[in-house]
């Protein structure tokens, strides 16, 4: 008898083995016990769902409060950076008169675009001291602003409508611009010497 025949005979003999009845009883008893335990756990599962629901409602309420706080904070932050809240600085150019938004007469022969109605409705208040900003046409004054200091040709500065000595002369002038987040300039003025870090001016 070779190995395969022996193993086949072993398989045939093994097929006659039967599971003792007490094992059957033990397994089915385990099933019944598991079912009873499952039923006992069912109410606690319901309580878990209730607790989970309360927790989710609490989390939702907390998120609403957090959102309200953020909106309030952002509103205050934006208000601090609007045009009205930026303190003007005193000009160092004695020859340049104080300018007021909306009070600049355009140069002769130059067609000035009309500012939008909203810009006209909200002029920049004129401070008691220092140079005010000149509104750039179509400026949206509601957006947050930041101030940029740049150097530009004197003639270009003059064409914006800002009174300046020797408007057709050569050379550069230092100006300060209020620029919105979209990169569009909202207003412009002649820069002061205060805080200007430059080797030629300080």
């Amino acid at each position: 008898m070779n190995v395969e025949q022996l193993l086949r005979a072993l398989a045939a003999d093994d097929a006659t083995a039967r599971v003792p009845p007490h094992v059957d009883a033990a397994v089915m008893a385990a099933w019944d016990e598991n079912c009873r335990e499952h039923h006992r756990r069912a109410p606690s599962a319901g309580r878990k769902r209730v607790v989970l629901g309360i927790a989710m409602a609490g989390a939702f309420a907390a998120s609403l409060v957090a959102a309200a706080v953020v909106i309030t904070w952002r509103g205050g932050s934006e208000a601090r950076h609007t045009l009205e809240n930026i303190a003007p600085e005193k000009s160092v150019a004695p020859e340049v008169p104080e300018v007021v938004a909306g009070a600049i007469a355009p140069p002769r022969g130059v067609e000035q675009p009309r500012a939008p109605a909203r810009a006209r409705r909200r002029p920049v208040p004129t401070p008691a001291t220092g140079a005010a900003y000149v509104l750039v046409p179509d400026a949206d004054l509601d957006a947050p602003l930041m101030m940029m200091r740049v150097r530009m040709p004197r003639s270009a500065f003059s064409r914006l409508g800002v009174p300046i000595a020797n408007p057709d002369g050569d050379g550069m002038v230092d100006v300060e611009m209020l620029v919105g987040e979209d990169g569009v300039a909202r207003s412009i003025r002649r820069a002061t010497a205060v805080g200007w870090v430059d080797g030629n001016r300080e």
């Binding site: 083995a17 599971v19 094992v23």
Partner: peptide, 17 residues
Amino acid sequence: RDAFAAIYERYRGVVYR
């Protein structure tokens, strides 16, 4: 319970052997 009993009856011998 009957479904589990059927599974058990079908495979208990295999597992035991």
